[in-house]
Amino acid sequence: MSLTTTLSPQQATFPGTPAPAARAVGVTKQYGAGDATVAALDDVSVDLDRGRFTAIMGPSGSGKSTLLHMLAGLDRPTSGEVYLGDTEITSLRDKRLTMLRRDRIGFIFQSFNLLPTMTAAENIVLPMRIAGRRPDPDWVAAIVQTVGLDGRLGHRPSQLSGGQQQRVAAARALASRPEIVFADEPTGALDSRSGTELLRFLRTAVDELAQTVVMVTHDPTAAAYADRVLFLADGHIVDEMHDPSAEAVLDYMKNLGA
């Protein structure tokens, strides 16, 4: 548990270490025009390490979700660059970007993660089906078992609890072996027990499968499952914390809010 100052991207990518899973370089996102311009992100640069669990925290309006959307290729910055591995994604056309999301990124949203007409099993392999690829059955079986969805695979989302639905979403996010999983408030709509189960699963994925996970959350307890927490305020990364505890994050957030 250590509190350090913000790292510059130059410091993070020194030679000898593998390239980060994702990288933002001077990303700015503005909404509106003229006098009414509001900057949701202001010149943010950050590296997200491979095989680690990163949480992004900050008060409402700090730009944390916007940053996640930029990194995940769901939105385009006003200026700056975003890299996924070695690929600069802000200049990609829609089709390439869509395929990149499909093949190299996993998503868990706060709610509405699943197609209501498809069973849990079908939802899990959705990105691969979209790509027209055959999923690796052993891998999918392993994921399903880890998530604890045995016996529920034939159910449709309406027949599953909120926690089960989010676990299906998590299984889908991992099933295609993405380079990075982005989770946007994945526990936001869950009770604490279901939330804990989901976070444990994400932690396991990082520890045992060397998966890279980036999660936006406003919950210090959730952030405590991460290896590293980035703190955003007013569109800037103001600080970060490694191996955090819930109490430390909560304290810091109180300071940030004060």
Binding site: T98, R101, R102, P116
Partner: peptide
């Protein structure tokens, strides 16, 4: 709308 957005997010191209 939401379903379509989800499909697009997880990788369905516009032509699909």
């Amino acid at each position: 709308t939401r379903e379509l957005g989800l499909l697009r997010a997880v990788g369905m191209t516009r032509s699909q």
